[in-house]
Design a protein around this nucleic acid. Structure first.
Lengths: 342, 342
DNA sequence: ATGAAAGCGCTAACAG
DNA sequence: CTGTTAGCGCTTTCAT
């Protein structure tokens, strides 16, 4: 690994000049520029980005804190974030916390301010807001992404997606189709982040004058397997259900599998809605009707906001930016209930 | 962001002492140690990892080069890699090339040697071996992961998984079940990396004295959608097929969907095998019979080898480490053909 | 046990 | 236009 100094020595100039050549800064004569460039390519010299970051006081990476990158939603988001970051010259550092506060803390301690210029934290069930707030107090730029508690201020600058509204939209779709006996599968704990989607569902049901029986609601993990089991149990307890609201796409797939296992025609006997619209949603069969959240927009906004916070420093206000309202995507898993059609 | 110097000043010692306290190096009296630690926590001081990396000549991240982290196989691998890396104090830098040589080059240029201590490159269809070899020549530790061309030396230290053998195993499973009319769906171009799995399949078929008709083989992208379309076309051209070998899990799901769409019972009318065993495989319905590749082992070996290459420097041999042989995982998508059972 | 000084590789004033 | 001088925040001899 050759250094700036070596290039300078061989080119018979100083490091300052080489530095200027490499970054097109300052005035350099065409002659020296050419000579320097020749040496650079001869040596295969590439600048030490860390050294540069150190002197510029600007680390080159942004940390993305997620609970687990293995949940398909996160990679899609991570990829979108990385794309945005690259446009601004940053690299993406992935921090999987595995929902473990210890790991999250270790990451935040290590990364904040030195290794990473800023931190983008996904709103997960177990996000340690306190840690993040402490980090912000310490002067590290932090932005919370995919915030989904519309009525609670996150105390951190954040990009919010109206998941509550997404729940409303899914419910209204089902109601408009003529369904009245609708069950719900919530892919998080009772106090988890998915409850907001569920509240949206409940409020829309109430607005339509339809009761939501608690026996028709089931909380479970955010996986296909859990969704399948939940659907089986909800359907067993409420055989007359014609539709299932699901707080996320993954459990929705499970519900679809349960329906198939029970010999239920979808959407003839049972309609199912998902939420978020991950890529699998359109590839699954039956293709899933879902409420799409724009990951690319959320990623873009999150990066933009983080950059703003980095720039404004301590004066950065604790803003909440709202991403566009989620959009209904009707595919093959929903339709009018049979009795309504009759 | 407080610095070492500030902590030192407040504690009435020099930076060297603080540094020693923080890293439990050198001899420090219990008294000063305590005093320093008190200031550290009072100030919320955290060392600048970049500065440390600079002086130690050891960047703190390892770059993982993948074509797209959105393909479900990669996040699973990335997560396993990150877990290993953390054990050794490294952070994970994700580099999505999107199969774009320009992006790949940009990443390698930027990252190699300074931002990242080493590079772990996944064997993808479009991996730019030349670039990686050039990087190695420049003294950057590079390890190729998931190499799958058993008969071709990669010219780079690498961790190889015997995908050829995986193809053999899948074929032998189908053959043992009594299938003789078996189609193949290859989730890459004809020259892509999946051909090795396909060759394994073909060789096993040949060994069993079964002909592989070219009309029963279809090349497609490595996605569910493409697999579904491929299965439809293969099945249309060869209605008498009783089984389908698929070079990856994603297209296998598509094949399963095609079977369902055609009213084919699985495995009664049609058996389908996948390859790799991503998490979806057991969650899909019917659950997919597949040949499992251990991502965690491959990740562990890859990291281990990269660390070795980093340590040995220029003397590091261009080794090829083989991961354990893939294992057959029988689930619900395969069974004896109906005519054999009759 | 602690301090002083040098330097990792680079950029940023300011001189000339 | 190019060189000189500092210094980013840290670790590391070598003294004391």
């Amino acid at each position: 690994m050759s250094t700036l100094a070596e290039v300078a020595r061989r080119a018979g100039v100083t490091t300052a000049t080489v530095s200027n050549v490499l970054r097109n800064k300052g005035r350099v004569s065409a002659g020296t520029r050419e000579r320097v460039l020749a040496i650079v390519s001869e040596l295969g010299y590439r600048p030490n980005l860390n050294a540069r970051a150190l002197v510029e006081g600007r680390p080159l990476t942004i940390a993305l804190v997620v609970s687990s990158i293995a949940n398909p939603f996160y990679p899609e988001f991570a990829e979108a974030v990385e794309l945005e970051l690259r446009k601004h010259g940053y690299f993406l550092l992935v921090c999987n916390t595995n929902n473990d506060p210890v790991q999250e803390r270790a990451y935040l301690d290590a990364v904040g301010g030195s290794l990473a210029h800023g931190v983008l934290a996904m709103h997960t069930d177990h996000v340690q807001l306190d840690e993040l707030i402490a980090l912000r107090r310490a002067g590290i730029p932090v932005v919370l992404s995919m915030w989904e508690q519309p009525d609670k201020h996150p105390e951190l600058p954040c990009v919010a997606v109206n998941f509550y509204q997404a729940g409303v939209i899914a419910a209204e779709h089902l109601i408009a189709l003529g369904h009245t006996r609708i069950g719900a599968i919530v892919g998080s704990e009772r106090t988890g982040k998915h409850v907001w989607r569920y509240r949206g569902f409940c409020d829309a049901m109430k607005a339509a004058g339809i009761a939501v029986s608690s026996s028709a609601t089931c909380y479970c993990d955010d996986t296909i397997d859990a969704g399948r089991r939940a659907a089986h149990s909800v359907l067993a307890a409420n055989p007359n259900l014609t539709a299932l609201f699901t707080s996320n796409d993954l459990p929705a797939f499970g519900a679809l599998q349960a329906a198939a296992a029970l010999g239920l025609d979808v959407p003839g006997d049972l309609s199912v809605t998902g939420l978020t619209d991950i890529q699998l949603a359109h590839q699954f069969r039956p293709a899933l009707t879902t409420v799409a959240v724009s990951t690319s927009e959320a990623a873009r906004l999150s990066v933009e906001m983080l950059l703003k916070v980095i720039k404004d420093g301590a004066e950065a206000p604790v803003d909440v930016w709202a991403a566009a309202t989620p959009q209904l995507v009707v595919r093959d898993s929903t339709g009018a209930p049979r009795d309504a059609a009759a």
